[in-house]
Design a protein around this nucleic acid. Structure first.
Lengths: 335, 335
DNA sequence: CGGCGTTGCACAAACGTTTGTGTTACCGTG
DNA sequence: CACGGTAACACAAACGTTTGTGCAACGCCG
C-alpha cells in the first residue's frame, strides 16, 4: 500500500526525479504549472510519503538521534529526555531512548546498535569518568554531547556545577550549626558524585573542620543504597547530626531508616538531598535539596548536538548551570 | 571511515555477496575454511558493521518500534517505556520515544513522522476514546497496540481494570463510613478516566447512594488541575468528606489546597489517588491509592506487538491486570 | 533564417545491502 | 574418457530515494 516514487511517476507520466523535486521543493526546479498541479494532486490523492529509509541511505543522514541514560524512571533523566525531544522535534528529528541501568555492558551494547543504525548523534547522560564508551563514540566519529555527568573535560558537556552544589548543601548545614555532617556519597566513578563530595570537603575545610572519613559512606544513587548507608552511619559510636545525600532518592532512603529508628527530622538529624525531583517538596518533612534544571540540560545539549551536525565538526563546548539551594523543612539547627 | 561491504570484498578478493553471507551466518553457505577465516579476520580488523539503513531498505524492516505517550515525566509512562524497552532489547530492536502532551495535533504529527520512518510498530499510550490517530494507524497498516488507555475494544490492548479500580477506591471510602464522596474526574475522552468514574458511580449505587453531580468535578491529570478542582469542591455549601482522585498527581494537588486551608487529612477529608507512583507512599500523609503495574504494561504490550510482527497479522488481544487497593494514612473515618 | 538561451523535463548513477540464480573447476564414477 | 555432481563462489537485480547532467523543443534576436 505504501506508494513509491516510481509508481507515482508512472501514473503522472513523468520521471521519478521530477516528483522527487516537487516533494522536496527544489528551489532550482523549473516546471510547468499544470505538471506541478497534476503531481501535487496525485500526491494528495495517494497520501504519498517518501520512504525515510531510502532517503536516509541516499542522504547519509537518518534524522534520528539517541539519548542514552541510566533510567527513565528517574525524573532527572526523564526531564533531560523531554528537553532534547522538544528541540529535536523542531528540527524534524526523532529520538531513540536507551536505558543502561548504569551497566557498562549495556551501555556499550546500546552504542554498537546505535552505530549500526547510523544515528546522526547521541546525547549521553550515563557517562562515567574516563568512560570507554565515550572513547568508542569518538572512535566511531559519532557526534555526541555529554549531559549531567562528564567523562573528561575535552568533550561537549552540559550540566551544573556540582562542586558548588556540594558546597552549597554543606555550607547550609554548617550555617545551621552542624559540625558532624555526614555524606552519603555516590559512586566515585561518576563526575557528579565525585564533585559533590569534593564540594562537601571544601566547605568543611573552609569552615576549619577536619573531615571525618567515617562520616563519608559510599552508598549509591538509589533509595535502597541510601538506606543501607544510613544504617551504617547510625551504627557509629558518634552518629552525625546532619546528612548530605548525593541525590534525592538516597536522601529518601535515609529518611526511611531514620523514621524507623524513631529519630526526628530535623530534630535529631537534618537531611539535604540533590536534584529537587518532583514530590520531594511534599515529603514528610519536605526535603531541603539542590535544584538543577533537567529540561534545560536536555534542551541545551540538543542544541549543541545540532550545532555539531550543522557545522560538521565536533565541539567541546561546556555549559554549566548554577545549582540552587532550596531550603525546606528537613534541615534545622542540631538538637 | 565506516567500511562497506564492497570495500571489504575488494580487500578480501571475493564478491560482496559472499561477505554478506558470512556476516549473516547464512546456513546454506558452502565456503572454504580459509576463505571464511580471511573474511572474518578482515571483519575483525576493520570493525565492520553492516549499514543498518541499507539493510532496512532491502529487508523492508527497520527493527525500530515507537512508544507514544503523553509525557515521560509522568512515572506511570516512564515505567511503561521501561517495560517495552526491556523486551525490545531482547529482540534486537531499538525504540523511539514520542511525547504528545495529550495534544492530538502533536500525536498526529508524530505518527506521520513515524510512518515516514517506516517503524515496524507502535505502542500507543496516549489514545483517547475513538481516537482518529488510531484510525490512522489502521489505515497505514502499522502494527500497534494500545496500552493503559484504549480507543475502542477492537484493538490489541493492555491495561488494568479501571472500572474495578474506581470501585475499589470508592468502596474503601464507603467502608470507612464516608457518604459524601467527591470525584476529581479526568478528561472523559480517555478510557481510564471514564471507567474510574463509572466505577465510582457503580460503587455508590451498590451502596444505595444517589450520586451528587456537584461532587463530580472535571479536573484533569495534573497537580495544578487537581488543585483547582479541589477548590471548587471546597466552595460547595456542603463539601465532601472524602475525595477519589483520577490519579495521584491530582490527589497531590488536592492535598496541597487542603493543607493551605488548614484542613486535616484524613481528619477532615480523606483522599485516595490512583497509580501508586513513586514517593506518594512518602507524602504527608502517605497516600492511599490504587496500584497498577506499569512495567508489566510495557512488557506485555511489547510482547503482543512482536507477536503481530512475527505472525504478520494484527491481533486484538486484550490483557487486563487487576488493580490493587493500597491503604495508607490519607484515608480514615469521617470526622 | 541561423544560432542561442531558456524551459521543462528525462537519464542514470549512486547510497549499501540481500538473495535467487548462474558458473566454473574439480572430483568421482562407470 | 565422458559425464554427472558438487563445492565454492560470482553475478546482478532489487529496495526507494536524490541529484548532476543531458537533451529536446521552443522562442527570440539580429
Amino acid at each position: 500500500m505504501p506508494v513509491t516514487l516510481k509508481q507515482l511517476a508512472a501514473r503522472a507520466g513523468v520521471h521519478p526525479s521530477t516528483i522527487s523535486r516537487v516533494v522536496n521543493r527544489d528551489p532550482g526546479l523549473r516546471i510547468a504549472p499544470e505538471t506541478r498541479a497534476r503531481i501535487e494532486a496525485l500526491i494528495a490523492e495517494t497520501g504519498y510519503r517518501p520512504n525515510g529509509v531510502a532517503r536516509s541511505l541516499k542522504l547519509r543522514q537518518t534524522f534520528v538521534v539517541a539519548v542514552v541514560i541510566p533510567d527513565v524512571t528517574n525524573p532527572l533523566f526523564a526531564g533531560i529526555f523531554r528537553g532534547v525531544e522538544d528541540v529535536a522535534l523542531t528540527r524534524g528529528y526523532n529520538v531513540i531512548l536507551c536505558n543502561t541501568d548504569n551497566l557498562h555492558q549495556r551501555e556499550a551494547s546500546h552504542l554498537e546498535s546505535l552505530h549500526a543504525r547510523r544515528v546522526d548523534g547521541v546525547i549521553l547522560a550515563s557517562a562515567t569518568l574516563a568512560d570507554p564508551s565515550v572513547a568508542r563514540l569518538r572512535q566511531l566519529r559519532i557526534p555526541f554531547v555529554l549531559v549531567n555527568r562528564y567523562s573528561d573535560t575535552r568533550h561537549a558537556f552540559v550540566g551544573s556545577d556540582d562542586l558548588l552544589g556540594g558546597r552549597l548543601a554543606t555550607e547550609h548545614l554548617l550555617s545551621l550549626g552542624h559540625r558532624r555532617i555526614a555524606h552519603l556519597a555516590g559512586s566515585q566513578k561518576v563526575s557528579t558524585a565525585l564533585l559533590r563530595r569534593r564540594g562537601y570537603l571544601e566547605a568543611l575545610k573552609r569552615a576549619g573542620l577536619e573531615p571525618d572519613p567515617s562520616l563519608i559512606v559510599d552508598g549509591g544513587f538509589t533509595e535502597e543504597l541510601g538506606a543501607r548507608a544510613m544504617e551504617r552511619l547510625l551504627a557509629l559510636p558518634q552518629p552525625p547530626t546532619a546528612i548530605f545525600a548525593v541525590n534525592d532518592m538516597a536522601a529518601v532512603g535515609a529518611q526511611t531508616v531514620l523514621a524507623r529508628r524513631g529519630l526526628r527530622i530535623p530534630g535529631d538529624v537534618s537531611i539535604v538531598g540533590y536534584n529537587d525531583v518532583p514530590l520531594v517538596s511534599r515529603l514528610h518533612p519536605p526535603l531541603t535539596t539542590i535544584r538543577v534544571p533537567p529540561v534545560r540540560f536536555g534542551q541545551t545539549s540538543a542544541e549543541i548536538l545540532f550545532e555539531q551536525l550543522e557545522t560538521g565538526s565536533a565541539s567541546s563546548r561546556r555549559v554549566v548551570f548554577q545549582p540552587e539551594l532550596v531550603i525546606r523543612a528537613s534541615t534545622g539547627a542540631p538538637g
